[in-house]
Structures are given as C-alpha cells and as structure tokens.
C-alpha cells in the first residue's frame, strides 16, 4: 500500500481524467443521438439507416475502433474522446428511438387533436414519455464507457487504464489492483446513481 499513499495525487488525477473522458464522451454522444433519434423516429428511411449504422458501429471492438481512429486523429485525449463518443452514440440513439416509438399512438393523436404544435408535442409529451427508455440507455452507455475508457490508455487518452497498463508493464501488482478496483467502483457507483434516477 506504500505506493498508493505516495501517489494519491496521480491516482486522483487518473480518476479525474477517467471521469472527464466518460462525461465528455457521453455529452458528445448525447448531442448527436438526441436530435438524430428524434428525426429518425419520424422518418422510416432515416430510422433504418441510423439503426443499421449504429449496430455496425457498436459491434466494432473497442480496441479496433481506437486503432482505426489513430491514423485519422493521432494519439491523445481528443482521439480517445471521439472513439468513446462514437461507441456510446449508438446505445443512446437506440434508446431515444425505442423510447419515442413506445409512445402510444392514441396519446400522439390526442396531442395533435388538442392543438399541440409539433414542438410542444415533442417536449411536453413524447420526450417525457421516452425518458425511462432513455435513462435505461444511459445506464448501458455509462457502464460501457467506464470500461471502454480503460482501453483509451493504449492511445494516450489517459485515465485509470494508464495505471493498469503501466502496472502490467512494470509487474507492479499494487498499481494494477488500484486501477482495476477504481474502474469497478466507478462503474458500480455510476450504475447505482442512475438506477436511483430511473426510479424517481
């Protein structure tokens, strides 16, 4: 444990980087998935393209995706962020589309018939009713990102993966364990927090 006490600040920095990477990637993914999902839920052709495309994107292994992006974006935080965002986006997109599609046709019809504009219908009726599905998607995306962000260390993205990778390199068991434990704890904590939100 001596290494841990002496390196608390760099461990904290790695944890901070990890959270930042996950958080920024989520925001970026949501910024794309939300409008795209809203559009796709209304247009069958776009829906098929978006869902098909996102299924392909999601099935690419994390490390392969990172490797593919390196020639385009080089190494570092930005490349890792983009890779993670493109990993979470399909999950969120699917959640938005299925959430919106789950709104009962009678409810939409009533909203139209009472004179809600398309925008009022979206914000007051469709999105609130799609919220449970979107939160469920967010939970999956967060769990995926916390673990995928570990791999970001390979392309210099920083985060807790750095502790694990360098630990493996140096045969430093304590370093490996600290990194791995913190990743697990982060994933669990995020899941508990989001599950609370889902229930509320």
């Amino acid at each position: 444990m001596r290494w841990t006490w002496r390196n608390l600040d760099s461990i904290g920095a790695a944890l901070g980087e990890h959270v930042l990477l996950v958080g920024a990637a989520l925001l970026l993914a949501a910024a794309v998935a939300l409008p795209l999902g809203v559009l796709a839920a209304r247009r069958p052709v776009l829906r098929a393209a978006a869902m098909g495309g996102s299924a392909v994107l999601y099935s690419v292994p994390t490390l392969a995706l990172f490797a593919l992006l390196v020639p385009l974006l080089g190494l570092g935080f930005r490349a890792a962020l983009l890779a993670l965002a493109s990993y979470a986006m399909p999950v969120l997109l699917r959640a938005v589309v299925t959430g919106l599609e789950g709104v009962a046709p009678a409810v939409r019809d009533a909203a139209d018939g009472m004179g809600l504009t398309a925008r009022q219908k979206l914000w007051q009726v469709e999105l609130p009713l799609a919220l449970p599905s979107m939160l469920a998607g967010l939970r999956v995306a967060v769990a995926t990102l916390v673990s995928a962000a570990t791999v970001a260390a390979y392309i210099g993205g920083g985060g807790l993966g750095v502790l694990i990778l360098t630990g493996l390199d140096q045969g430093h068991t304590e370093k490996i364990l600290v990194g791995a434990t913190l990743v697990c704890a982060l994933a669990l904590a995020a899941d508990v927090a989001l599950r609370r939100m889902q229930r509320a």
């Binding site: 009678a106 019809d109 009533a110």
Partner: peptide, 15 residues
Amino acid sequence: RRGIGYVIQEGGLFP
C-alpha cells in the same frame, strides 16, 4: 383544433 373538443377511445390521456 384548440377550439374543437376531441375525444378518442380510452381517452388518449397523457400517462
């Protein structure tokens, strides 16, 4: 539409 009452099966209430 805001000036016309509209009632559908099951009421179409906002859940």
